[in-house]
Design a protein around this nucleic acid. Sequence first.
RNA 1: CGGGGCGUAGCGCAGCCUGGUUAAGCGCACCUGCCUUGGGAGCAGGGGGUCGGAGGUUCAAAUCCUCUCGCCCCGACCA
Length: 476
Amino acid sequence: MVTDKVTPKSKDVSGWYNDIVLRSGLADYGPAKGTMVFRPYGFAIWEKVQEVFNGVLKTKGVENAYFPMFIPYSLLETEKEHVEGFSPELAIVTIGGGEELKEKLVVRPTSETIMYSMWSKWYQSWRDFPILMNQWANVVRWEKRTYLFLRTSEFLWQEGHTAHVEHEEAKEMTLWALEQYRKLYAEHYAMYGIVGKKSKKERFAGADETYTIEFLMPDGKALQGATSHDLGQNFAKAFNFTFQSRDKDSAYPWQTSWGLSTRSLGGMILAHGDDTGLILPPKLAPVQVVIVPIIFDESESEVISYAKKIEEELVAAGLRVKLDTRDYSSGFKHNEWEMKGVPVRIEIGPKEAEQNKVLLKFRIKEGKELVDSNELTKQIENHLKTDQEQLFEKSKKFVEGNTSVVEDYEQFKEVMTNKRGFIRAFWCEDEECESKIKAETKATTRCLPLDAKKEEGKCVYCGKKADYRWYFAQAY
RNA sequence: CGGGGCGUAGCGCAGCCUGGUUAAGCGCACCUGCCUUGGGAGCAGGGGGUCGGAGGUUCAAAUCCUCUCGCCCCGACCA
């Protein structure tokens, strides 16, 4: 057991982050470079995300499937931009069963190629459309630097893929997925993000348009939370994926793909935690309520049976409850569960058992309240609801408070040197300006917000005509 | 791929410079017992190491030399 204090978040964000992820039991480093282990406490959060998002997919008629992780190199090569975009970070299998392979196998960095090559075999008629599929999978992108959850060689995600007869319908699908991510983040992760469109340079390799949701982390850097791509007919053409349309012509379908990865958990940890440790939003917390019995020899059985009764009541109300009867001191348990970010703690000792009350402690609030056990379930449910909302409000305030609107490049540079965070500035949408800004300030374009208004502006870098204010930030 | 750092018990480290009586140590964790539990308890006892690997120097190597493997951090790169 770990007994010393965690690195303060206020002092060293990444030190705090590593410390807290390891010690809270969310994850650990794997033995091979760049890999990580999702420990049960961490994986439980991801399972919750899966449960929620599977429900969302179902409402749209998206079905789950699973495609192989090994992709013949030639398949990946079929879409030129795609392979160029990914080749620096591919893991490739050259030997299998002790023999050199005739054709190298790529460990999937994403599944467009393998899925669409299969689809082209399965679907021939306009009657088969739209095709709506999702898979939960691991993907591999060879990263040189490891950061638990945020940057690992292998990570978990869901990737949704669709194919439509009409482009308009595909575009709607892309925006639908983006909106689902925004909602998932807002309502479950309790995180406020900026949704928008990526610049050409930041686009997914092989897409016509990429949409994103961007978050701001406590150190002032931006984290891409999920992406949704309008693939046009690029992959369909590359894979000769055609169908017979209603008017008898052979046609290429319009496709989309969109993904959310376990990186989102890293963002959530960074966004909400404090010097004490994790703060988990109630909807995703694996344990919502922990019960810590305060045991003295003479009252042990009485306290435990009362605690069990309380546990049963809360479980019956649909709450995720843990009764911690381990033989550690109660003070130790308090600190541990606070570090693990459990939203609500109940302390039960002889006094409470006798009076039919419990002592309530909320993770995000100072002080404890003595509560009548009849009121307990309702009080906890209310608290979890407001807790969830407050975390979101806090996140929103943070983003708003750390977004700077700048009018010229001097201001831009000054913000990047001192405050960082999001910068809203006019940009002419010329790639050269984008590259130079990045080289000089480390800031990249994050997105053009969906609700951006067209204005008469001048590019913050070159001074030429610019229509929109883009979001800039240093990316993770 | 560049720069830096580190491999000694589960984790964190000391010992290395100046080789040997410190013939492998410390803190935490772990196990047993007693005791204890209202904010990170205490006492006593105990288990656990081919000192990353290979080779060399030497009467003698965790310690010196050579090679090698691995990891971490910073940068570059990165959906």
